[in-house]
């Protein structure tokens, strides 16, 4: 499953956006969206400086 964001932790810093190899994370006005073409590589989860992303569904 693609990653999910914990909105209470996310600082909207864009680190995950610039790191995603397939450019599928979008910082919207109030939310962070991950599109379905996510390859589940996990890089965004790892780069997040404050652990706001987690792999969903497990």
């Amino acid at each position: 499953m693609k990653p999910e964001v914990n909105g209470e932790r996310c600082m909207r810093c864009g680190a995950c956006v610039g790191t995603c190899p397939v450019n599928t994370i979008f910082l919207k006005e109030f939310t962070l969206e991950i599109n379905d073409d996510c390859t589940e590589c996990g890089m965004c989860v790892k780069v997040c400086p404050i652990d706001a992303l987690y792999m969903g569904g497990d």
Partner: peptide
């Protein structure tokens, strides 16, 4: 538009960054 640049990606200008070339900061 900074580190998260979309314009560069829309234009297909660059490759994705290598993990060794990304500094994550706090």
């Amino acid at each position: 538009d900074g580190f998260e640049s979309q314009v560069g990606r829309w234009a297909g200008i660059y490759d994705s960054l290598k993990p060794k070339d990304i500094m994550t900061c706090f």
